[in-house]
Write a protein that binds this DNA or RNA. Structure first.
Lengths: 193, 193
DNA sequence: GCTTGCCTATCATGTGATAGGTTGTTATTT
DNA sequence: AAATAACAACCTATCACATGATAGGCAAGC
């Protein structure tokens, strides 16, 4: 068996999802829920229905899986961001879309941002995983800087740094307190001029 | 041997630090650097120079250690906050002191906030550890709400939620990027009216 | 026939945890 | 004062289990 039939509700078509993608999906969900060090090969494999040794065929080391996970997450995040902003009427709507991506993670998916979780475990991560996480934060800061600039906000770079930090922390605090109003308060502050 | 002589620079006196405190100190440093799941009894014991079995004498289960850690951290944080704000000339200085506690962790100690780290691992933590972490966030939000209120800021509760989130996320992003300007930008936004 | 994707079996190491013994100090009794 | 009980704080030894990882085999499909 090469691929498994997966029905993508929003595409209304049947596509082939590779086993590799399936592994990444499950690993991502697990790590976003419990962190890098709390997730094991056996657990991921078990959820798919294969043996942990088979996982090593796709990802020889855990660091390989972690690295690929962060890269894919960053790409998907950027893709979703582009797709959500291409019809934006103004820069403010773009920023709202940026916030929405975080809100969606917390409220719909009930998960944190992968890079926020891994960022908290930074010193126990393989080095290249770590720097990929840093890249995610930096590229988000850059993106948000541009958006603030376009919106005519003052101190766009500083505001963008604060904005990325605010959303990251809002996910953690909101999730810990099981109180989405924390996220909404944070979202407001990111939009405030 | 019951205690070890420890010189407290700011007290100019020699006190006895219990082994229990020493264990908590090392466990706190380790967990704030690498997270709950990356820290083992053997590692903590090794750093002190005892065996891991002896650790279980002081803290039977890892959850006991974790819980005690969060409680002690919360108390110490509150104590430091009170001590730093008792001479504050105005509410703004109080908020600055609140920010300074976070800045000190990141820049002087080169560590994150314990509860920020544990918050990111929430779903893999023992339940009572988890709710203690939530208590930390809530009491910080309450404290900051009062401070904003005293300072005459509008929407103090919402602002406080955003402020706590911002500082939490700033620690992670700043640490990951090894760029303290992220923290400073976040700190500015917390102070901004 | 080569590649892909899985399998079984195994490995060394790390993990939290327990049982039971040893030592030195402190408190109580004789 | 001496003997004894009690306790705190460690130890050794061991446990069952989880972990990441490797070697080698097997079947399907191009």
């Amino acid at each position: 068996m090469i691929g498994k039939l997966v029905f993508f509700y929003n595409l209304s078509q049947t596509i082939i999802m590779s086993q590799r993608e399936r592994i990444l999906d499950i690993a991502e969900t697990s790590m976003r829920a419990r962190g890098y060090n709390a997730v094991s090969f056996r657990e991921i494999a078990g959820e798919i229905g294969i043996k942990s040794a088979s996982l090593h065929y796709h990802f020889p080391k855990k660091a390989d899986l972690g690295l690929e996970l962060v890269k894919r997450y960053s790409e998907n995040f950027r893709t979703a961001l582009n797709s959500a902003t291409e019809n934006a009427a103004n820069p403010i709507e773009k920023i709202e879309a940026f916030i929405d991506l975080h809100r969606n993670a917390l409220i719909e998916q009930e998960l944190l941002c992968l890079c926020v979780v891994l960022g908290a475990e930074a010193r126990s991560l393989p080095e290249d995983v770590n720097s990929s996480v840093a890249n995610f934060f930096q590229s988000n800061i850059n993106w948000l800087t541009d958006a603030y600039q376009d919106a005519g906000f003052e101190n766009a770079p500083s505001r963008a740094k604060a904005g990325v930090a605010t959303l990251a922390g809002a996910l953690i605090a909101s999730d810990s307190l099981k109180d989405n109003s924390v996220f909404e308060a944070a979202a407001d502050s990111v939009l405030k001029s």
